[in-house]
Simulated scan of single mutants.
Amino acid sequence: MKNYIAYYRVSTVRQGKSGLGLQAQQNAVQKYISGKGEMIAEFTEVESGTRKKKRVEIYKAIEFAKLENATLIVAKLDRLARDVEFTSALFNGKVDFICCDNPNANKLTIQLLSVIAENEAEAISTRIVDALAVKKDKIKKGIYVNKDGSMMKPIDGEYRLGNPNGFGDYQKKGVEKIKQNALENKANIQAMDVICSARREGMTFQKIADKLNKLQYTTRRGKQFNPIQVQRLYKRCPKIEKLNE
């Protein structure tokens, strides 16, 4: 029977705390090692897509695997193989490893995928830079038009590509629209009386979710309730009650 060291990665602190993504990786690893060996340690890398920093958990996992003569196991190969830092750490660490979704992968497989991914990333970056340069040149010559056919106009003396207010403007409008839809949705409104009443009685969000599902209440997407959805609706409870007045 082998000893295994699991390495997981989630994209944000919020995702790491909620278990989204992490649970799927854990399930895949547990399913793979069932009957094959024992899990002796787990390491989870929580990172933000907007902040690049040196990862520490992968090095801890590799060192512990070497110390315990264990096999390093990851849930999915595709994403990690595109990470140069991960593959470098794996090569230099000199430990056995296994990928649940591709058990036959070896160090050569990882290295090839990493090189291909790195070259593709560089090619994409070059294409984007070249395309932007062409667009800016057309704008200066006055031959570049917007999607509606109108000529692009300068803002503060400069020609800017994309939304002048930036992506944040679209994002803000999208979030506001989602919140408003949730407040006005009939399924949410119908469930609110149960949620507010149950919370006043001291019931947990899990028990409230179970109660709603037992009473055959559904979310606005027609799904069963879970504790996170109940908690979100409870926070909006006063607003929805106000709409009903």
Rank of each mutant, 00 (worst) to 15 (best):
E57V: 01
P164N: 13
L233I: 07
K2I: 07
T12P: 00
Q111L: 11
A24W: 00
S150C: 05
I128G: 04
Y159W: 04
N102W: 10
A182P: 03
E42D: 07
R221S: 11
C99K: 01
A182I: 10
A75E: 07
G142K: 01
N146Q: 06
G49N: 08
D193T: 12
I195T: 05
E184N: 13
R199C: 14
K54S: 10
N188V: 15
K135H: 02
L90C: 12
A89E: 08
K140L: 02
Y170E: 14
F225K: 00
L183P: 03
D130R: 02
M203F: 08
K211C: 10
G21Q: 02
I208E: 11
K177M: 14
L72Y: 04
V10M: 09
V84W: 05
V13I: 09
I155M: 03
I40S: 08
Q180M: 10
G162K: 09
I116A: 08
S18N: 03
I128S: 10
A61K: 00
Y217G: 02
I98Y: 13
I73M: 04
V56E: 14
V46I: 13
L90D: 10
I139H: 00
N119R: 09
Y217C: 05
M151C: 04
N104S: 14
S48N: 06
C196L: 08
S125P: 00
L212T: 14
M192A: 10
R14D: 09
K235N: 11
T126H: 03
S48C: 06
T50R: 03
F167N: 09
F91D: 15
N106R: 01
V134Y: 06
V134M: 09
C196S: 12
E38G: 00
I240D: 12
R55T: 13
L215F: 12
N163W: 09
Q25H: 10
R82F: 15
K141L: 09
K242Y: 10
K2E: 13
K136V: 01
S114G: 11
D137P: 11
K107Y: 08
K214C: 08
A24N: 02
G142F: 00
G21P: 04
N69P: 00
K141H: 13
Y32L: 12
F86L: 04
D130M: 05
K153E: 14
K107W: 12
I208S: 05
S114M: 15
E68P: 01
S11W: 01
K141P: 01
K239N: 14
I124E: 15
Q229E: 15
S150F: 05
N146D: 15
A65R: 00
K147P: 00
P227Q: 09
D130Y: 04
S150G: 02
E201G: 03
S197M: 07
K76L: 02
C237H: 04
I128K: 10
R232N: 13
L20H: 01
K36G: 09
Q206N: 06
T109S: 09
T71Q: 12
N165Q: 03
F86D: 11
N104W: 07
Q171E: 11
K172P: 08
K76D: 08
Y32P: 11
V29M: 07
I73E: 14
E120T: 10
T44N: 02
A187D: 12
S125Y: 08
I124M: 14
Y144E: 11
F167D: 06
G35I: 06
G49W: 04
A182S: 10
K141Y: 09
